[in-house]
Design a protein around this nucleic acid. Sequence first.
DNA 1: TAGTGGTCTAGACCACAGG
DNA 2: CTGTGGTCTAGACCACTAA
Lengths: 255, 255
Amino acid sequence: MAPDQDRAAGSLYRKVAADLREAITSGGYGDNGRLPAEGALAEQYGVSRGTVRQALAMLRADGLVTSRRGTRRVVLGTARVQSFSELLSFTHWARSMGEEPGGRLESLIRRPADAAEREQLRLEPGTEVYVTLRLRTLSGKPVMVERTVYPPRVGEVVAQLPPDVVSHTEPLREHGILFTDADHTIDVVAANADDARLLGCRRGSPLLREKRRTTDPTGTPVEWSQDRYLPGTVAFSIHNSLASSALSRHAREND
Amino acid sequence: MAPDQDRAAGSLYRKVAADLREAITSGGYGDNGRLPAEGALAEQYGVSRGTVRQALAMLRADGLVTSRRGTRRVVLGTARVQSFSELLSFTHWARSMGEEPGGRLESLIRRPADAAEREQLRLEPGTEVYVTLRLRTLSGKPVMVERTVYPPRVGEVVAQLPPDVVSHTEPLREHGILFTDADHTIDVVAANADDARLLGCRRGSPLLREKRRTTDPTGTPVEWSQDRYLPGTVAFSIHNSLASSALSRHAREND
DNA sequence: TAGTGGTCTAGACCACAGG
DNA sequence: CTGTGGTCTAGACCACTAA
């Protein structure tokens, strides 16, 4: 078991959800099969129906099952949805694919925030921010350029990390800086001179861009980042429904 | 009020959620402000705490509020998240931006499904599918090429629509074909000859691609589509958190 | 310590699917 | 009609935050 999965512990409904997820993804209920009724599951696990429903809501959000009034839940598929930490951390993502993540800090500067940065990070005029430029690699091959702006509290921690540290989210968590919510925007952008030099592509060639603003549980922004990927190295996937949705990032596969 | 929003009707928690959403987005609680306690909201609306929590879970998924044990919920922002129908329907999306959606059916053919299509739509070998190629425009300007594969049950309905019909999801709903779940993948692809001709770009120039498979409440696939957008016309946004996430598509704004 | 959200229970009624 | 998921209630206890 990956250490990530142990987070199922702590609450009952997470344990039930983890167990059901395991049963589903290992084919225990078949594809397009039906799950037992909520009442049956409640009895089977020795919990109330409400707890079972809370567990099933997680699977619903992940696109594993549908639900419709009147009939049993249907197994949609064995969709692989990434955990939140896999989504935010290049390092976790790479490792989950069996690739070796690498990176190089190109620059780290401290300067007053401009208007856009103040807006994104909710900072007072004159506040200084830390700005990093990193090249990210998979098994030695450049795939992404990452530009991140940190507010002072976070930047001070980042600035003291060794320049060759692979993961940033882990040390930050140890400093009590938590990532709980993120807004992402995905589009296409042309490579500028820096992008071209670092990624080894032509200037003006298209890159897949992900802009991301992350906040902690109090709603305070902790990071504003702009990642630019070489085409063909990444795709973003989302499952959504009338009720909920989820995003996942994965290596691109053939058409 | 847009007709879409009337769907808040039907259940209590949706009404509560709609009311709170309105209060938040109109600034009633301020940015980074605090919501009243769950108990207070329950009393205010005359419902149980469980119902209030169900409503708040929706706002949480939309990125409007955070939550943390021990303190009141924090208003994250006034994020505009699109409804599921806006996300699936080009027509709804265009109108929500105040643009005039247009389109032209370039071709509609019926032929046996190939291996990939059978896989995506869960069809038996030899089953025939309907394949459409459409050019989509905003206020007359080409922005997207859409290739959709329908299984027979759905294709038969689509094939009988007038070629210049703007929205397909609406007539389908009237035929009892419901869209409840979708999986999306977003990446970059080079324009082929057809794309270049229809969109008026050079062959090989980059396009933002969204692949989408949609299913109905029983888990049966009803559509497999591949949309290719001109760069600069669209971006995709997602809010996600430790608990949940949502996707929205919107017009690109300046950097 | 007091207030808050997170979790869990037990029971109720309804709307809808399908025989 | 029966069985199912959808909704709602009333109450309980716990873990955590902030004063």
